[in-house]
Every structure is written in C-alpha cells, then in structure tokens.
Computed example of a mutant assay.
Amino acid sequence: MQDIDLMFENAKEYNMETSQLYKDAAQLQEYARNLAEQGKTRPDNDFEDENGRRPLTEIHHRGEVWRVGDWIHITNTNDLAKPIIGQIYRTWQDSQGQQWVNACWYYRPEQTVHRHDKYFLENEVVKSGQYRDHRIDEVVDRCFVMFVTRFDKGRPRGFPGDKEVYVCKSRYNEENHKLNKIKTWSSCLPDEVRERDYEMDLFDIPRKLKKIPSPIKHLLRYDAKPTDPLPKPTWGAPNAPPLVGAVHCRERESNLTEDLSVQETPPPEPTAIPAHIEPIRRPSMMPALVPGIAKGTSA
C-alpha cells in the first residue's frame, strides 16, 4: 500500500487538481485503500490453499524468528553430523497448527556426482533443484551461503562467528550430474529478498580461496573407464540429500558446452506471503513539469 500510495501521490503532485488525471488518481487511491481495509478484516482461513496451508510472515522457533530468505541448517537423517544446508522459500502453518518451511537444498561436494579429479573450494556447496518441505522443529541452526565473488572479501555484518559460512559458485543438475557456473546470484534467491543486499565486515585484504580435492575421489572403481555410464548417487532417507555421491573418469566437456548447458532452476509456485520487508522508497524520477501541460504523464 505504501508503494501504491507513492504512485498516486506522484500522479497528483505533477498534475493540476482540476485535471482528469488528478481526479482519476484520487479516486483509485481511495478505492485501493478501501480494498486494503477489507482485506485486513478477512479471517486467516480465507488465505488457506486447497491443502489447508496458511501462509505465515514469519515463524518463531527456539527463541529466533525465521523468515523467507534465511539460510538454515536442517536435520539430516542420513548423517546428523552434516546438516542439510538450505534457504527458506516459504513459511506456512497446516490445518493441525504445525508450522513448516519450504527450503531449497544446497549440496555438499560429497553428495554430488562428479569427475574424480575435480577440485572444490573449501566450504563449497552447490545449489540443487530440490525444494523440500520441513517441519520447523527440523531447523537446527542458522548458516549463511555467500556467492564466490564476495566470499574472499569478508563476512556478513553481525553474523555470529560460531555459525557456518559456505561459498557457492555452481548449480548442480541432478538429471545429467553436471555442475554449471552461476552467472547471476540474484536468480538463485527467493523473490522476496532478491533485491535486498546485506552489509559486510571486510577483511583487511582479500583472502585466497583454498581448493581441495574431491572428498570422495577414493570411490573411483579400479576398473573405471571413460566410456562407462555415469554412476548414480546412493540415496538414504527419503527427505534428505544423497547418502553419498559418486565419481567417474568420463571425458571433460568443453567450456562452451558447460556455458550453454546452464539452466535457471525455477522456484516453486509462490504463495501469497504477507510482506515483512520494508519496501525501498525511491523519489519520483519525473522531471519538474509545468502542472497540467502533459496530461498523460504520471509517475
């Protein structure tokens, strides 16, 4: 409503009160405000979907507030020592009152299928196409995932030093088991936080990123050949990443092929979640006009 009001106020600012544009803006502004007031009086169950899910702005759990965009550690039933890394895309409550999050999973290198001689960055994770539902009590802690272009320069301002910070530079395609470089980090984030940046505490000098060999390179079969079919990961619990990935010695693909194979992973269908982020207010970009001259001009 603040954005809508700003639009109408701009329209009235740059047009005379006697103009049709001014009158239309005033009438639509009043109509929009009335609709907003009507919406506030609707009961919560009016917003439930066909499965009885009611969108939530935020979830209070373990003394903290969890919202869309938060990076989280989720209980990994395959390996409790390696929690699932994810980012919250939706928050809601079911008909029994249980609160849930939908999170996009980020895989650890050992959970992917890749060449045995591949190197990864220390603390690297890769964005998967898995968007899974988890009860809020499965969320165990906060973490943070930074894009590779910022990871060497500092850390998120105010983020506790005892929390894990990961670096990401690739998407993982589970159909063909390819790792493709991410071109635009914002395309990986939920719409609600895509335009919101975070401040950083910068290092005195950028840190050199350390590369480490694949943690599962030893799993390469002694008789493996470049012509072998791609191996498959080993899956365990149904709502957890692979128990372990796999390695192979197939021929590398050219950089051109890898660039052309980059696919943008679509997020799940959006849920009407009430906005909890303060919108950015921008001044009108219109030039100062003589009032009433350009009737068709509005902000």
Rank of each mutant, 00 (worst) to 15 (best):
F8S: 07
A11F: 06
M16H: 09
E17S: 11
T18H: 05
S19A: 04
Q20E: 14
Q20M: 10
Y31S: 10
N34E: 15
P43R: 12
N45E: 15
R53I: 00
R54C: 04
T57C: 02
I59K: 03
H61I: 02
V68L: 02
V68C: 06
G69S: 06
D70C: 03
I72M: 00
T77Y: 15
L80G: 01
G86D: 02
G86Y: 03
Q87N: 00
Y89S: 03
Q93F: 02
S95M: 03
Y106I: 00
P109L: 00
E110W: 03
T112N: 01
V113T: 01
H114F: 01
R115E: 01
H116S: 03
E122H: 04
K127V: 00
R132L: 08
I136R: 00
D137Q: 07
V140N: 02
R142G: 01
V145Q: 00
V145G: 01
M146T: 07
P156M: 04
G161F: 09
G161I: 06
E164N: 04
V165D: 08
K169F: 12
S170F: 15
N176S: 09
K178A: 11
C188L: 10
P190R: 07
P190C: 10
V193I: 15
D197M: 14
P206D: 05
R207D: 10
K210F: 05
K211H: 13
I212E: 13
S214E: 03
S214D: 09
D223S: 09
K225P: 07
L230M: 08
L230Y: 08
P231M: 05
W235G: 07
W235S: 11
A237T: 04
N239D: 12
N239V: 12
A240D: 06
P241I: 13
H248I: 05
E253V: 11
L256Y: 13
T257A: 14
P267E: 11
E269V: 13
E269Q: 14
E269K: 14
E269C: 12
P270G: 06
A275V: 11
I277M: 15
P291C: 07
K295G: 09
K295S: 13
